Amino acid sequence: MRIQYDSDPTRPVEERPKASVARFDETIPATRHRSDVGCNFDHLVWRYEFPASRWFDGLELFRLDPGAYTDFHTHRADADVPLEQVLRVFSGRGVLRTERRDEPLGRFDHVAVPAGAVYQLGNTGTEPLWIGTWYSTGDNEASAESTLESGSETRGRAEYEQIMATRAERGLSTAPGDDGDDGNHVGSPNADRPEPAVEAFTDLQPKTRYEAPAVGCNADWLAWMSNFDELDRISDSSVMKLEPGEYTSLHTHFDNEGPHEEIYWVMEGEARLVTEYRDERMSRFDCAFFPTGNSHAIGNVGLDTLWVGAWGARGGVKGEFDLSDLEISERPGQTEEYERVMAARKKRGLPLPPNVEVDDR
């Protein structure tokens, strides 16, 4: 396609924000220690920092070896700022345990955790369990209490005893050596407490994103998309599958979408991130953040299938349209922005797709 651009593409009406990339091999993991609230082994947690984000308050990747469990964790509704959280299994097999049920987790399964819900995660497989998670408080600052490890929270042990008692009453397993009734618990957990919602990847039907030269998508590819009715601040998630050489559309989330911020997390494969200002290679467990107004695309530069998890958040602000309803080329302003970005990349000496030529002044 030939793009005619007769103004300065590097000087839009407002300067577009830049993407941030956090690399797994450059992130030093912290150790979460065995605790008296259900964590039976030390395990490692990699925390990714994106200070420019308005909605993504914290992102973590953690690894559980076979037989290992996290603590029982609660984002209590009585915390200063209620916290919402989402989790996705990157690889391995596990279980989600709550006070009311146990639910198996497999590859790419997704968990939405509303404020006030309680949960524990465990590895029930024979390989390491890798799970990516992030939380949001909307346009608020998380309280110190709400971000503590469960074993350090003021009411952590007392609440854990309540949960064990309720699980025992329901015939669910408790911690090894804990019969769920040591006489120390007081009452039962709140019957109205919300439950995490599990969405099995195998139950989802993929949506085809069609080749769209006008916005840089060079092939049909599949996306498994989710919206969260249980959550107020976290809006959507998807799993993207790209075969070698395939690229998504280059697109921008403008204020008319929320304003919408986005995270890409490489779950498997080798990727190339394309933006207005630079390109970056991304490998397994690398993570990228796109603020509102940033143009971005991702492509498969490896020999195997690329799987990318994406999460979007608007802090509870409603967009003018549902992202899943429209192809990217149909969203307002996307084609015009793609042409400007291609012209800007040419001016900055960055490569253009093989089918793109830019005639500028």
Rank of each mutant, 00 (worst) to 15 (best):
I3R: 00
D6K: 12
S7L: 09
P12V: 04
E14Y: 14
E14N: 15
R16L: 09
R16T: 02
A19G: 06
S20W: 04
R23Y: 01
F24S: 00
H33P: 09
H33V: 08
V37K: 01
G38H: 05
C39I: 11
F41W: 14
F41L: 15
P51C: 00
S53W: 01
F56G: 01
F56V: 02
L59G: 02
E60P: 01
L61I: 01
L64R: 01
G67N: 02
A68R: 00
A68L: 02
D71R: 04
F72M: 04
H73N: 09
H73T: 08
H75Q: 08
H75R: 09
R76L: 11
A79R: 09
D80L: 14
V81C: 13
Q85R: 15
V86T: 10
L87N: 08
R88E: 15
R88F: 12
V89A: 08
F90Q: 11
G92H: 04
G94N: 03
G94I: 03
E99H: 06
F108A: 03
V111M: 01
V111C: 02
A117E: 06
Y119T: 00
G122K: 00
E127V: 15
T133V: 12
T137A: 14
D139K: 05
N140R: 08
A142L: 11
S146N: 04
S150N: 15
R157W: 13
E159L: 10
E159K: 13
M164E: 10
T174N: 11
D181G: 09
D181S: 13
G183N: 10
G183S: 08
H185V: 05
R193V: 14
P194Y: 02
P194K: 02
P196G: 01
P196Y: 01
P196R: 04
V198L: 03
T202S: 13
T202N: 10
L204A: 07
K207L: 13
Y210R: 12
E211F: 09
P213R: 03
P213Y: 02
A214N: 12
N218M: 06
D220W: 08
W221F: 11
W224L: 04
F228V: 07
L231G: 07
R233T: 07
S235F: 13
P244T: 07
T252M: 14
G258D: 02
Y264M: 13
V266D: 14
V266G: 12
G269I: 02
A271F: 11
Y277Q: 06
R281N: 10
S283T: 09
R284P: 08
F290A: 05
P291V: 14
N294M: 15
G299V: 05
T305R: 14
W307C: 07
V308E: 06
G312I: 01
G316Q: 02
K318R: 14
G319M: 03
D322F: 08
D322P: 03
L326M: 06
I328D: 04
E330V: 02
R331S: 01
P332G: 00
G333E: 01
T335I: 11
E336K: 12
E337D: 07
V341A: 00
A343Y: 00
R345F: 05
R345D: 03
R345Y: 05
P354C: 04
P354Y: 04
N355W: 10
V356I: 05
V356E: 02
